[in-house]
Write a protein that binds this DNA or RNA. Structure first.
Lengths: 129, 129
DNA sequence: TGACTATATTCCTATATAGTGATGCAGTCA
DNA sequence: TGACTGCATCACTATATAGGAATATAGTCA
């Protein structure tokens, strides 16, 4: 059983276990998705697209970034299959194509938030209140 | 209510919504975690650590990477608070400090796997079976 | 057709970081 | 103490990519 990305259906894909044979390619594919989410600007864009689809121009306004920059980030997200495009006249509307990104971000947000809370508490305690 | 990373407790952090006020800092923190997971080599390391804690030397052997490289990746994971260290004599043992990384990877693995399956089916169909 | 607009792309610079070999350093053992 | 081991760090190269300005391209409308 090569191409073990299918083992995902069994859960615990990354965690090493009995049947877990991760191929080099699988690590690369997973890392690629994380890389697509590893830029604050792209998270801003996805955040903006959370409500509804938006044109590039609207995204430029929403993110306060340069047009070329937004366009390039959208290309990255498109290549990662995280967003989808729809052309309408002169405009191109983008929308989130994989809703799981929100779950990922929520999970990260919770985890990081918890850690910061713990650290904050520790510092407060160290400071004597 | 600045510092809205706390809104994570309400879920749907990234998805724009009523109370969702994402600060620049929050996007940066979330992106930083994704960045730590955005390298195949680091995923390999976490994968190896899924079973049990391991020394740097064991990880070098398990990953077939250079010692300096493994050490640097471990530093990145440590800075991201994804692993923790324990020194014992000459050895340093690392372990996963945030179990949620496995959930993240599982989610990504499922999502990417589904997409690939869909694409595969589409190509097969196009090829006429 | 030509002027105009929205988006994509190209070219550039600056920065980050993966990988490697050499070295530093702390801990162990004779 | 000195030799040795395991890990971290430094110095370096190669590569990737974020950002911006300029330009190209595609679609619209007169």
């Amino acid at each position: 059983m090569k191409k073990s990305i299918r083992t995902a259906s069994g859960a615990r894909a990354l965690r090493a276990g009995a049947n877990s044979e991760m191929t080099e390619e699988a690590f690369g594919l997973i890392a690629a998705r994380f890389r697509a989410l590893a830029e604050p600007m792209r998270l801003r864009i996805l955040h903006s697209l959370g409500e509804d689809e938006m044109s590039v121009g609207e995204l430029v306004e929403a993110t306060q970034a340069g047009q070329a920059n937004v366009s390039k980030h959208l290309t990255v997200l498109l290549d990662a299959h995280l967003v989808a495009r729809r052309k309408e006249g002169l405009n191109v509307f983008y929308r989130v194509a994989d809703e799981t990104v929100f779950d990922l971000c929520d999970a990260v947000c919770r985890s990081v938030g918890e850690r910061l809370a713990v650290q904050h508490t520790a510092v407060k305690r160290f400071a004597g209140r």
